[in-house]
Design a protein around this nucleic acid. Sequence first.
DNA 1: TCCTATTTAGGACAGTTGACAATTTTGCTT
DNA 2: AAGCAAAATTGTCAACTGTCCTAAATAGGA
Lengths: 217, 217
Amino acid sequence: MDQAPKLVTDLLLPERGGGYAKGHETRELILRTALHLLIEEGYRAMSMRRVATACGMKLGNLTYHYPTREDLVRELLNAVISSYEVEFAAIVHAPGVPPEERLARVCGLIIDDIGSKKSTRLFPELWALANHDAFVYERVHELYDRARAPIVEIVAEMRPDLSEADRFDLSLFISASMEGLTVFAGYQRPYGERLTAVEAIAIRSFIDIVRSFKGSQ
Amino acid sequence: MDQAPKLVTDLLLPERGGGYAKGHETRELILRTALHLLIEEGYRAMSMRRVATACGMKLGNLTYHYPTREDLVRELLNAVISSYEVEFAAIVHAPGVPPEERLARVCGLIIDDIGSKKSTRLFPELWALANHDAFVYERVHELYDRARAPIVEIVAEMRPDLSEADRFDLSLFISASMEGLTVFAGYQRPYGERLTAVEAIAIRSFIDIVRSFKGSQ
DNA sequence: TCCTATTTAGGACAGTTGACAATTTTGCTT
DNA sequence: AAGCAAAATTGTCAACTGTCCTAAATAGGA
């Protein structure tokens, strides 16, 4: 009752040949519970024991499926990020729609997602983790590269006259601008109720700068 | 050798009447060491024992100055944030300079700071902490409110015709845009070398949107 | 000088953590 | 129904955490 409609499937976990169906269900429960704990109480609370207890299972069983905490974190990250990637892959195509409109739609989707509890809570945790964990760093920025790809494409369509570097910098600015809203206007952030208004400003601003930007040469 | 010129004094700790100068020095050493640990190895590494060891002192001495870990965290946050606030307070005034130029200068300073190792590493940690710690949340957003104040002022000067809400939303977009760069173009982030180029795009974009924005009515 | 702040040197406490091993129970297939 | 692999249980391990404590030594400032 406190959440906008889900934009992204929460988890997408890999098939693992050979096991029972029960095992797959258990692993899904584990990752879902771990994610819930991460979002609700932060990374520290996502200990092996708390995850196991919250799952209603014994610690030994958790370490049976995920022998180390690092395994759990890696699999969780893979599952979370895969679900985002599936989402972004679906956005790209909308034939016949002018690029400005497509840019507005893509940005609208991303900003709406930023306003969700899951994204508002999850990504700052990931940014902090990425500071000191190479695997998280790599995986997170891989995700952002994919999320930025549609923007790069649209910018290229709008400004074929620009160099690739200029187009990339524009896209980088656009995606960074949106992510920055997480901290201020995300779910239950101090100016969360301004998100819609700021979204309009952002999209207008993005279209303007792409249209009017004079190349760096 | 890997750091841009320091933009902000690292720490600003409160005077404590009655004590010796030695005690003050020790507390400064403690907070400085704790901050270093936080930046270099993250929040988990900032344990009482590790801070004490890194300071070359005994645990008992650390708990003498900061009885609980919460005390240490609070004082550290206060000291770090105070130093930023002092910095921002100095930026505001530049009489005779047109508002566009002042906006460009303020944003330039903020974005330069975002490119520093300290800010790139520290703020994502704080954002994550703020997710589940009311004190950190309050203190961090208090800082951002102060950092945004000069922007709000300049926007008001440029667009006195707009409503206060519109001006605030514009300022919010501007500050959020800049903070978002932390993740992508901060120190040792994947596109850190693009920060200067993106800074130019950002500033141009900010001036454009403030100039051209049509009120929400 | 004398009082107080600071520091060292220990230790102890209860609690948590990740990891592992031995064991039992369960579920699927033949 | 049997048998084997998967799944789950139980118990233990060393290491770490924050907090608290005492006793003694040292140093600063009035």
